Simulated scan of single mutants.
Amino acid sequence: MKTCDNTSVGIFITDSQGRYLMFDRATFPPGTAPAAGHVDDHGTAEDAGRAEVEEELGLTVTGLTHATGCWRDNRCRRLPGARGTGHDWTIYQATVTGDLTPSARETKNVRWIAADALQELADRTVAYAHGRITDAGFEATPGIEPVWVQWLADTAAIHISPDDLLRVDQLTR
């Protein structure tokens, strides 16, 4: 099993209508999220962002703008890295070109999600964090992948109370 490098990138892609290109993760952790992955041997965070968009969605990144990011204590499916369990995240907003060709290995249900539907998915994650949805129920019909709730709130894509944000953050550990 691979060891985590403790660095991750995530890439928001939006269209002219303000919808977010998101998908349900086909691998751990469950949830709906944009393209993301470890920096690993990609070189820079920018290089990793471009590679992840290509690997997961088949699109070519034509521009990257830093959006947010910080250290998060979120688990991944790898063995803990030198810094323990967690990742130093860099989140970008990207412009892309090409034809959408999602990876069947990493993605399910790739779709453009409007702001109101994004909020509904975030609300589902909050309900899961409060124990109103079972693990099996969340995996079957996911909300936003818990680590992404913070980034979506940071960029004002969704609205969540500080208390609910803390509760959702507990799911990432």
Rank of each mutant, 00 (worst) to 15 (best):
T90C: 04
T65I: 07
D88P: 08
R124K: 11
P162Y: 14
G69L: 02
R132Y: 13
P80I: 00
A122P: 01
Q93H: 12
V149I: 09
R72F: 03
D123G: 07
L152H: 07
F138R: 05
A114V: 11
G49T: 00
G137L: 11
T95F: 12
G63N: 14
D135G: 03
D123W: 06
A122I: 03
T85P: 00
T44I: 05
P102L: 09
T60G: 09
D88R: 15
A114T: 09
H42L: 00
V126W: 02
V96A: 13
T44Y: 01
T125M: 01
W148A: 05
I160L: 14
D99F: 13
G37A: 02
R132H: 10
E46T: 06
T134M: 07
R50S: 02
E106R: 11
I91T: 10
E56T: 01
Q93R: 13
A48T: 00
A33K: 11
W148K: 04
I113F: 07
L166G: 14
L165P: 06
A129Q: 03
D47G: 06
E52L: 03
P142M: 03
A153N: 12
D163E: 13
T107G: 08
R75V: 00
G63L: 15
P146R: 05
A127F: 05
T155Y: 09
R105K: 14
E54A: 08
H42S: 01
I160W: 12
E56F: 00
L165Q: 14
G143W: 07
Y92A: 01
G63A: 13
A104H: 12
L57A: 07
T95V: 12
F138G: 06
T101N: 15
A117L: 14
V149S: 05
A129W: 03
A114W: 10
T155I: 09
D73T: 08
G86V: 07
N74Q: 02
S161R: 09
A94F: 04
S103C: 09
H42C: 00
A35V: 00
E139Q: 14
R111K: 09
R78G: 02
L152E: 10
A33G: 11
Q150K: 13
A48M: 02
L121E: 03
V53E: 01
D47P: 04
A94T: 05
I133W: 07
R83F: 07
T95A: 15
E54R: 06
D41H: 12
G37K: 00
D116W: 10
D164Q: 10
Y128E: 01
R124V: 04
E54W: 04
P146Q: 04
V168H: 05
F138E: 06
C76N: 01
A115C: 11
V96Q: 10
E46Q: 08
A157Q: 14
A82Y: 04
E54K: 05
